[in-house]
Design a protein around this nucleic acid. Structure first.
Lengths: 128, 128
DNA sequence: CGGGATCCAACTTGATACTG
DNA sequence: CAGTATCAAGTTGGATCCCG
């Protein structure tokens, strides 16, 4: 009897599928960071968000926001002022991602010192 | 007094920086999934990993594994057999990411049904 | 101000073929 | 088996201009 496939329990398969689905929603270089800012800071306007998320181009921010909105993670509100102002905020569904955001934030804070000491590839970008 | 900057508490800044650092380590479309497989399934060979992580190309897998190794998240072991076989497994540091992987897996499992019902953009890719 | 349209450069990814 | 080389295709970023 040939055994050419790795056996995986149903439980593991479900977990992995969960990770895959989550990653799909958060796909793109910036989505997680955008959500983090909306979560930790709260409702923000387009230009504020652009300033907060360092390095992102307007075009890219616009695209990522649209995708997040399509997936119902954020809500876009346009105010009929002059000139127009637009707010972005998390939906309840988006808020539910806080478990992931918090975990990532805590992991990053916990290992920041280690990363810096180890001189891993990340250092140049991690130093503030 | 003009207030043109959003005020952010130090605590939030640290959290956001944590998220950013973490994202930097997990940058790339596949790293989180690769780590998930190594975490839930355990040590694996190159080709097994390629089969598990559906859709990834050899070249990309190779590249991502190298980056993960550089950041000390995984360990590469080459066995001097014929033909050569190579194992990949998480380091202790890599294992510490389990908090994030678990959280993402649980979030994904919890909202999978909602996603499917809502018919969000993700559906086509999420259905198994 | 909040974008969208366009063009261009740079980087990433994927498919296929190939090697020790 | 574990990659590498090559080329094609897609994605991203920047700059600029435009509109309401």
């Amino acid at each position: 009897m040939k055994k050419d496939k790795i056996e995986i329990s149903i439980k593991c398969q479900n977990h992995i599928r969960g990770v895959r689905d989550t990653m799909y929603l958060l796909d793109g270089k910036w989505k997680t960071l955008i959500i983090s800012h909306l979560y930790y800071i709260g409702k923000m306007r387009f230009m504020d968000l652009k300033r907060q998320v360092e390095g992102i181009a307007s075009k890219t921010l616009s695209k990522e926001l649209k995708e997040l909105e399509m997936n119902n993670l954020i809500k876009r509100t346009q105010n009929n002022t002059m000139p127009v102002s637009v707010d972005y905020e998390l939906t309840c569904f988006g808020e539910s991602l806080h478990t992931i955001i918090d975990t990532m934030g805590e992991w990053g804070m916990k290992y920041r010192k280690d990363l810096l000491q180890k001189g891993s590839k990340v250092v140049a970008e991690v130093v503030d």
